[in-house]
């Protein structure tokens, strides 16, 4: 019985020939891979794609591989292959049915379908014959690299390689306009937090905090004013209640009412003023 040292990625993609997908960040070593690596696929029909990959997986499972399939919160799926008697993931298919959430840039959800729609195919030779592999178009490859650069450059300075790649590919290319058009149509930068632990952050943050200090003082003063006003109002209310009780208990009601009315009116006026001041 044949035993497998590594999974043959060609076999899986031959099975996916009729499905709509693209391989994002096509690995240069394909179909070879390093143990622990993965491939990202954008899929139109997640269920069909998973089922086709699993149908190929069966022959690996029969030879001792374990395959673990996990559904992510966003509906994406991991298909993880574990070689026989090994607890570490040998290879992962990371399947997406929508764009990931980016922290640094807004990307319209429709861009996902644009990538699939405009995909290009490259023909490959496998043991079972020729088949087509689907990748993002050159334009979408540049846009995706740009998004990756924006998303990661602070945390991973090496991601500047994507910017170099874009600049090299565009050069004097008339497609420059299309690249920018697509970028503007589908993406928008997010307002960034100023990182506090950088020279940039320190000067900007200091100015921000200084302005904030004045505003905070004004707010504190206003709060104090309102508190004082409320204390006065409480005192007036207490006085009115005392007088009301005195007149209603000891004199005929109509006399009490006659004397209390001006106080009640004053109280109402003060309340109204308070509302106007406080808005």
């Amino acid at each position: 019985m044949k035993s497998f040292e590594k999974i043959a990625l060609d076999d899986f993609f031959v099975e996916l020939s009729d499905e709509k997908y693209v391989i994002v960040k096509f690995p240069g070593t394909f179909p070879d891979y390093l143990s622990g690596s993965d491939v990202d696929l954008y899929c139109l029909d997640m269920k069909a794609t998973v089922n086709k990959l699993l149908s190929v997986s069966n022959r690996y499972v029969e030879h001792g591989y374990r395959v673990v399939v996990s559904t992510k919160e966003d509906g994406g799926v991991y298909i993880d292959f574990f070689a026989p008697e090994n607890e570490r993931i040998d290879f992962r298919f990371d399947l997406h049915q929508s764009l990931p959430n980016f922290e640094r840039v807004h990307v319209r959800p429709a861009y996902f379908f644009s990538i699939l729609e405009n995909s290009i195919s490259i023909q490959r030779d496998a043991q079972s014959g020729k088949y087509d592999l689907y990748l993002p178009s050159k334009l979408d490859d540049l846009v995706l690299r740009y998004i990756e650069y924006i998303e990661w450059y602070e945390r991973r300075p090496d991601k500047i390689k994507h910017l170099d790649y874009i600049l090299e590919k565009i050069g004097n290319d008339p497609d420059l306009k299309k690249f920018l058009d697509k970028l503007h149509l589908y993406t928008k930068p997010k307002l960034l937090d100023v990182p506090p632990d950088t020279h940039f952050g320190r000067s900007i943050l200091a100015e921000y905090n200084e302005k904030n200090k004045e505003t905070r003082k004004e707010v504190a003063d206003l709060r104090q004013m309102i508190e004082n006003f409320n204390r006065h109002l409480d005192e007036i209310n207490r006085n009115i209640e005392v007088m009301r009780a005195f007149f209603l208990d000891s004199k005929p009601y109509t006399v009490g009412k006659f004397i209390l009315t001006p106080f009640i009116l004053v109280k109402r006026a003060i309340r109204k003023m308070g509302k106007i001041i406080l808005g």
Binding site: L54, S57, N58, V61, E62, R66, V68, V69
Partner: peptide, 8 residues
Amino acid sequence: FRVFELKI
């Protein structure tokens, strides 16, 4: 269930 495993 969100996770399953294929095993012989």
